[in-house]
């Protein structure tokens, strides 16, 4: 519909400001969001998670920008009109727009999930630990991570809650079990070799904890009574922080661990050092 000059209201500042407010949310939001936000990647499957993230950032960023600019435009235009320019769209147009939106969201949201998301999800959760994987058990408790390696026999020894003692035997390891003799138990420090699959067996003694390695894009809740396992491949040497990501009590914030990704040689020597200190 055409608009003639005399149907415009005179200029006033408020609509400009309000329009600018919404427009700049879109514009500055996108400018703020561009760039690398996540901690620097250090795992193989994490590349897939980052790809999913990038895809979502780009698609939602575009919609975010378009949406806010449209609002800004409509506010600016609408505030100067003395008559409405469009009243009702035809039912057919309304229906078509909804179908188009439905298809768009199905493609953007479901399509992203199916094409990028689920393959990563499957790689992460369905992975079988290969024979050369390094196995480590992590037992959460308020507010520590107990770390255990099976030692040379590759088997974890039995544990018994009656034997638990927070100072000398936090996981209640039964040293009379032959499999337990060479188990290495340690606190808060995890050593793994770079570029080899790591199998992490998680347990909790008390609360729900969550094993969160931000750089490795790993997060798994540890619900007491359940023994979830993770398999992933660290790809970069370095010391990465381990944080608890499920509220577990007043010391939740200081339940910090360190995940050391080291060379094969360094890994062997570290385990020897830990074994000698048992």
């Amino acid at each position: 519909m055409s608009e003639t000059r005399d149907t415009r209201l005179p200029f006033s500042l408020e609509p400009v400001l309000v329009g600018l407010l919404f427009g700049s949310i879109g514009l500055f939001g996108v400018i703020y969001g561009i760039g690398e936000w996540a901690p620097e990647l250090a795992s193989r499957h994490g590349a897939g998670i980052d790809a999913m993230m990038t895809y979502l950032m780009v698609t939602t960023g575009a919609m975010f920008l378009i949406g806010h600019l449209a609002m800004a435009l409509f506010i600016w235009q609408g505030s100067r009109r003395t008559r409405i320019s469009h009243r009702l769209a035809s039912p057919r147009f309304e229906k078509r727009l909804s179908i188009a939106l439905g298809v768009l969201m199905a493609v953007v949201a479901e399509g992203g999930v199916v094409a990028i998301g689920l393959p990563v999800w499957n790689e992460y959760f369905m992975a079988e630990a290969p024979p050369d994987a390094v196995t480590v058990e992590v037992v959460g408790q308020q507010f520590f991570w107990n770390v255990r390696y099976p030692g040379a026999d590759g088997e974890f020894g039995a544990t018994d809650i009656q034997l638990m003692d927070d100072v000398v035997n936090p996981i209640g390891l039964d040293r009379s079990d032959p499999a337990a003799v060479d188990d290495i138990v340690w606190l808060n420090e995890i050593y793994v070799p770079v570029n080899r699959p790591v199998r992490v067996v998680l347990r909790s003694k008390d609360m729900i904890h969550s094993f969160f390695l931000p750089h490795l894009r790993v997060k798994q809740d540890v619900i007491p009574g359940m023994v979830p396992e993770l398999v992933f491949v660290p790809t970069r040497e370095g010391t990465f922080e381990l944080a608890c990501a499920e509220l577990c009590g007043l010391g939740h914030y200081r339940m910090q661990g360190f995940f050391h990704v080291v060379s094969d040689a360094e890994f062997t020597s570290q385990l020897e050092r830990l074994a000698s200190e048992q």
């Binding site: 519909m1 609509p15 609408g78 009109r81 008559r83």
Partner: peptide, 8 residues
Amino acid sequence: LFGGRMRL
């Protein structure tokens, strides 16, 4: 919002 006569 499109085509309306807006009062803020």
